[in-house]
């Protein structure tokens, strides 16, 4: 249990300053000049990062003519017409939103669950060729989608999975599962086996030791894995296009549908972009401190 305490403390900026310095904050001395340089660089990075997103957000509230004005239009009467357009008439974004949430959420959940099991097994197994097995796992994520999509489509059609949510979930698993197994097995292999061993000495079964001792310790890793998997599947376009259908359209598909033969409605497109981005940002920000801890953990305990 104690092994993980430093990791918890290592959450950057977790109110208590002493904890931060103790667990590896940078040397706090440093010339004023260098601190100014750091601040300027961070500010520059912020500008570079936020201008496109801010512009997208701003444009989504502009009236049509203002969106494509040839000099940037900063004074405009804000309107919700772009958002309203996405939820009325022939467009109704609700089902898209629902499909996105369900498919991405379920797939991330399943990937994390199966990834935890397999990652643990992979971390602890002593089988020969373990390295090859774990590399194979990683390599399944590298297949270029345009090449494998035809066979996957035919297999899914054969199994009746086209245009179904389980189909999309399964398709997303094909790229999330290897990622989850790989990431989580790194976490598990950093935990000393003595943890489970002592639990087993205390009378726990193997499964109970995993469930009640190992899993709680990897919570940051599990959260990190879940969030990254969620982001990858939420943002997927290629699989959703091919394997989805009238009943399983997702948000990225809706975005591409606004590219029409007679023009792109940039107002609506920026609105949809905002809608696609905001939920993921909220999720990401909600668990940000877990993200850093999750990614840190292996290294800390391995010290």
């Amino acid at each position: 249990m104690t092994a993980v305490t430093p990791a918890r403390a290592a959450v950057p900026g977790r109110a208590a300053t002493p904890a931060r310095t103790a667990a590896g904050g940078p040397p706090q001395r440093g010339s004023r000049a260098s601190r100014t340089v750091v601040r300027v660089l961070v500010a520059a990075a912020l500008v570079w990062t936020l201008v496109p997103l801010g512009w997208m957000l701003l444009s989504s509230f502009k009236p049509t003519a203002s969106v494509t004005a040839s000099t940037p239009d900063l004074w405009f009467a804000p309107t919700l017409q772009n958002y309203r357009g996405l939820f009325s008439g022939a467009n109704n974004l609700w089902p898209y939103l629902q499909n996105s949430v369900l498919a991405a959420g379920l797939s991330a959940l399943l990937a994390t669950a199966l990834g935890a099991l397999a990652g643990y097994g992979l971390a602890r197994t002593r089988m020969r060729g373990k390295q090859h097995l774990s590399f194979w796992v990683v390599s399944t994520r590298m297949a270029p989608i345009a090449a494998v999509v035809l066979p996957i489509f035919l297999i899914f059609r054969f199994l009746g999975l086209i245009d179904t949510l389980p189909g999309l979930v399964l398709a997303y698993l094909s790229f999330n599962l290897p990622f989850a197994i790989w990431l989580l097995s790194a976490f598990f292999s950093e935990l000393p086996p003595s943890l489970e061993e002592s639990a087993q000495v205390a009378g726990c079964g193997h499964w109970q030791a995993f469930r009640h001792v190992v899993l709680p310790l990897t919570r940051p890793g599990l959260v990190t894995t879940f969030v990254l998997c969620l982001v990858f599947s939420w943002n997927d376009y290629a699989f959703a296009l091919v394997l989805g259908g009238p009943h399983t359209q997702t948000l990225p598909i809706a975005a591409s549908q606004l590219v029409t033969q007679t023009g792109i409605d940039w107002g609506q497109l920026t609105a949809i972009g905002t809608l696609v981005v905001v939920p993921m940002m909220l999720v990401g920000l909600a668990v940000r401190r877990w993200l850093v801890t999750g990614l840190t953990m292996g290294a800390v305990t391995g010290e």
Binding site: T49, L50, P52, L53, V231, W234, N235, D236, Y237, L251, P252, A255, S256, G273, V276, V277, M280, M281, V283, G284
Partner: peptide, 9 residues
Amino acid sequence: LPMFVAPVI
């Protein structure tokens, strides 16, 4: 924030 934006977007 940018890493949460879909590539198509």
